[in-house]
């Protein structure tokens, strides 16, 4: 308990929480993407993937619960950090310039984070209220993505996730203290590649189904 308190209290501790939960989400995204890509196998392949996943029963619920806890930790910690960092500079500069460290990804972390939360709420509630009793998940998807507005919003959300990853991925290595001149450039490149893969992987599915 003392250990938990010590971590939550300090700035590096909070940073470690963000990095750890972020790492878990990166892993989750890989699995999620791998599953989703079965869409390209057609309706049967995709539906059998969905059924296999659901047949895991209690394991699915455990995973869901774990993700929920991780999300709460990530969101609450992130919000605390956002507020603390605003308060750390009560008088703003009249002129601010970047010197090459800050990127679009890093500058927008709290905002892209918030947008992802909004997206997640929509994403999850769609599937809860879609009525899975009388149609397959594949049908739900094709129905949903027959609307160009939905396609557009979904792709926009995927890009936001990619932007969040473009900073978050390498950043979590730095936070864990894994920064070495020999491999840091590779990790940074890997982060960008991962972001592009997520954007392309998730982003092309609605285009494939809808168009």
């Amino acid at each position: 308990m003392q250990l938990v308190l010590r971590i939550i209290r300090t700035s590096i501790g909070k940073k470690l929480l963000m990095a750890f939960t972020g790492l878990c989400f990166c892993c989750f995204l890989v699995i999620h993407l791998a599953g989703n890509l079965s869409v390209y196998g057609g309706a049967d392949t995709f539906n059998s993937y969905v059924n296999h996943l659901h047949s895991l029963g209690v394991l699915v619920h455990i995973a869901e619960l774990a993700l929920l806890v991780l999300a709460i930790v990530h969101i609450v910690t992130g919000t605390v950090l956002f507020i603390e960092n605003l308060r750390a500079r009560p008088v703003r500069y009249s002129v601010t310039r970047r010197s090459g460290g800050r990127t679009w990804g890093s500058a927008t972390m709290p905002y892209t984070g918030f947008l992802i939360l909004v997206f997640l709420v929509c994403h999850i509630s769609w599937f809860i209220y879609a009525g899975r009793e009388y149609q397959t998940v594949y049908q739900i998807l094709t129905g949903l993505f027959s609307n160009p507005v939905v396609i557009l919003l979904y792709c926009a959300a995927v890009l936001v996730v990619a932007l969040h990853i473009s900073h978050g991925f390498w950043s979590l290595f730095q936070t864990f203290g894994l920064n070495h001149n020999a491999y840091m450039p590779a990790i940074r490149a890997l982060g960008i590649i991962f972001a592009v893969i997520v954007a392309m992987g998730f982003g092309t599915i609605p285009l494939y189904l809808g168009l």
Partner: peptide, 25 residues
Amino acid sequence: VLAMLNMHDELGFGNCSNERECEAR
């Protein structure tokens, strides 16, 4: 590390989010 970090936080400095502007400047 624990003492210096606690003092850093107590004094009202912000939290590092790996923006890398510091090393550039």
